[in-house]
């Protein structure tokens, strides 16, 4: 599965894998998806973006002007977010790291 084009593979992405007894941290699948959305939003909100679950099968990514994009996995969120935001989202960006450290 490719981190860049995983969305086209058509099967479960590695970030969707269940690793706990019933999901990471013992969560149900539904709960796990919501947890994933919340974790992603912790990053995305720094860029004025918001992710939401779409019927348990995809994710909706939107910005503050109402532009939205449907993505199939968390890995596909990042290229879509960079397109919507028109800037790179870099996890090594020291400003982002400092914000998350204060969070």
């Amino acid at each position: 599965m490719c981190g860049l084009c995983g969305v086209f593979v058509g099967e479960d992405h590695w970030t969707d894998a269940t690793v706990g007894e019933s999901g990471s941290g013992g969560r149900t699948r539904r709960h796990e998806r919501l947890h994933r959305v919340a974790q992603a939003n912790r990053i995305l909100k720094q860029y004025g973006l918001k992710l939401s679950d779409w019927q348990g099968s995809a994710y909706l990514l939107g910005n503050q002007t109402g532009q939205t994009s449907i993505v199939s996995s968390v890995a596909a969120v990042w290229p879509a977010a960079e397109r919507l935001r028109r800037q790179a989202i870099d996890p090594l960006d020291v400003r982002l790291i400092e914000v998350l450290e204060r969070d």
């Binding site: 706990g20 994933r36 974790q39 968390v74 090594l92």
Partner: peptide
């Protein structure tokens, strides 16, 4: 989940330069 989000974001931006990630993880649950 938090690790997966971080790694997927890292690979999206720096995948060409992350030549290898290998680990044995103790995960919650």
């Amino acid at each position: 989940t938090a690790f997966g989000i971080w790694l997927s974001l890292l690979l999206n931006r720096h995948g060409d330069d992350v030549l290898r990630v290998k680990g044995i993880l103790c995960v919650e649950g």
